[in-house]
């Protein structure tokens, strides 16, 4: 069984989303708690700026909950940078017990899943799930220097700069995590790092199919099914693959990467991506709708491409992974 049911209530106590300037100019601009004034966010390197996104997202979450860092028992988090420095330097001042994770862009669902399962064991009372990404720190690690003149193909995606944090607690009332489905790695032989949506689409469909089977539900039982960062072309492939499996993704299917930016106006090609993509869209735009009662049941499926430039240069293909977390309103 790939799906774990969270039987003792695990609820969302507070959440926050902090984003960069470009994200703050997109369609979701009014949903975020804080928009950075520039790409450096007052720091002198992109990596430090990413860490600041993390610390600000946690600070705001704690502030909303009216808690101090010592009230948090465990923190799950990760990012795209080598050795996960975005997260670790971002949280070092908080002194919260920390488990660092790497699931590429699927890390937000991975953090939420592990936090929920751990809380449901009943030995701790509060945990935070946090992830981040930064366009410029990711570009320099995975692709070319920022000022290098190159053209991006239409399938390329734009790494979201920002961080989202969710504070979960054992018991309480409000939005609950009711089940999580841990995905398998799937490799369909895609090797183009500028076309990651289709590399992740099979993993998304597999996790969705497994989740629906394990929970005996159908697509229409959800107000919203949200993929992490498949982008416009990845979404198209996901719809096709799902159709092959007899799953029809209709109006209640959306992708965080496509929600984050105005694809025509903001020059982001196929849409947003990165660990911060599903984290900021979910924390900023979707959780409030669950809290208000507009949505009753939402399935977040963050998607990740497990690869590195080294592996690609050695001729490896790009593996996809996707984890699902089901949220239900009161």
């Amino acid at each position: 069984m790939q799906t774990l049911f969270i039987k003792t209530p695990v609820t969302v106590e507070a959440h926050a989303a902090v984003v960069g300037k470009k994200e703050g100019e997109g369609p979701l601009r009014d949903c975020f708690d804080l928009v950075a004034e520039d790409i450096f966010f007052g720091e002198n390197t992109f990596e430090k700026a990413e860490s600041k996104f993390v610390s600000q997202a946690i600070n705001l979450t704690l502030k909303k909950a009216g808690l101090k860092p010592d009230a948090i028992d465990l923190l799950f988090g990760g990012d795209l940078l080598n050795q996960c420095i975005g997260t670790s330097y971002g949280i070092r001042s908080f002194e919260i017990p920390f488990l660092g994770l790497y699931g590429a862009c699927s890390t937000m669902a991975e953090s939420l899943a592990l936090a929920s399962v751990t809380l449901s064991c009943g030995q701790i009372s509060r945990a935070i799930a946090v992830t981040s990404s930064h366009y410029y720190s990711a570009e320099r690690q995975y692709r070319f220097p920022i000022e290098y003149g190159g053209q991006r193909p239409p399938t390329a995606q734009w790494t979201v700069s920002g961080s989202g944090a969710v504070l979960l607690k054992n018991g309480g009332r409000g939005v609950r995590v009711t089940s999580v489905t841990i995905g398998k790695m799937l490799d369909f032989g895609i090797t183009d790092a500028n076309n990651m949506g289709p590399a992740m689409a099979p993993a998304f469909v597999d996790t969705l199919k497994t989740h629906l089977k394990d929970t005996h539900r159908k697509v229409s039982d959800y107000d919203l099914i949200l993929s992490g960062d498949l982008g416009s072309f990845g979404m198209e492939m996901a719809r096709e693959l799902a159709k092959d499996e007899g799953i029809f993704l209709g109006e209640n299917y959306a992708d965080c990467g496509c929600l984050m930016f105005d694809l025509k106006r903001q020059d982001v090609h196929a849409g947003g991506s990165g660990c911060g993509c599903s984290a900021t869209v979910f924390c900023g735009a979707i959780l409030p709708e669950l809290e208000s009662g507009k949505y009753r049941r939402v399935l977040l499926i963050s998607t990740g491409a497990l690869m590195s430039p080294t592996a690609i240069q050695q001729g490896e293909s790009i593996c996809g992974i996707a984890h699902a977390v089901c949220f239900e309103g009161e």
């Binding site: 239409p154 032989g189 492939m237």
Partner: peptide
């Protein structure tokens, strides 16, 4: 799958 992606991209 690769061919399908190539054709649709």
């Amino acid at each position: 799958y690769r061919n399908r992606v190539k054709a649709a991209a």
